[in-house]
């Protein structure tokens, strides 16, 4: 996995709470057998009308959203299905971090496995970010902080091993494979 140490970007805001993975990537696009190209299906039913025409008012379709790598979303982002396609679609679109007050467990796991950083913030910070789309933020993974435009520093929790993996680009499968002798021993005694 690529190393992830810092990220500086403006934000795109989707204020809705409980954005589920069926919204992030509708099931009818899961018939793919690869990870590639899902970005164009990201939020498909919110981004495009029934004729495939982009809805101008949707945040991701606005000119200011171009090139933004940080998504700010309402609480409980990524609930529902375990489809890793949700993380793949966000990354393929260009996102490297999502900020919310709360993430669904499986989504957060899937995101971190692919180098997409779930950033958990307090209600007040989330409210400020939601009210200020396009805010320029600088995320520092090592310090587990990000800087708001006025210079205020916000801390966020990040599990120690996930942080280590992001910073060092650790391959998790390689890490597990290195436990082969312990796994063998477990299988012998189980």
């Amino acid at each position: 996995m690529e190393r992830f140490t810092t990220l500086t970007s403006r934000t795109v805001v989707l204020p809705a709470a409980n954005i589920d993975t069926d919204q992030i990537i509708p099931a009818r696009f899961l018939t793919t057998t690869t990870r590639a190209g899902l970005g164009k299906r990201l939020f498909a039913d919110w981004r495009y009308d029934e004729h495939g025409v982009p809805r101008a008012q949707f945040a991701l379709n606005q000119p200011a959203a171009a090139g933004c790598r940080i998504l700010v979303a309402g609480r409980n982002f990524g609930c529902g299905s375990s489809r890793e396609h949700a993380a793949w679609a966000l990354i393929d679109h260009g996102f490297r971090a999502v900020i919310s007050t709360e993430f669904a467990d499986i989504f957060a796991n899937n995101a971190l496995k692919n180098g997409l950083l779930p950033v958990i913030v307090e209600e007040a910070t989330a409210a400020w970010l939601i009210a200020h789309p396009g805010a320029a933020l600088a995320i520092d993974v090592a310090r587990r902080t990000f800087a708001l435009p006025d210079g205020t520093t916000v801390s966020f929790p990040l599990e120690a091993f996930a942080r280590h993996r992001l910073l060092e680009g650790v391959d998790e499968l390689g890490f597990l494979l290195a436990h082969a002798s312990q796994i063998d021993a477990y299988e012998r005694r189980a």
Partner: peptide
Amino acid sequence: FGIGSTEVAHVLATQCLLQRKP
């Protein structure tokens, strides 16, 4: 419990998962 496709690969290859205790 449900897992993503990367973890599906982990289990196929090692019969194990890295998990924090819920």
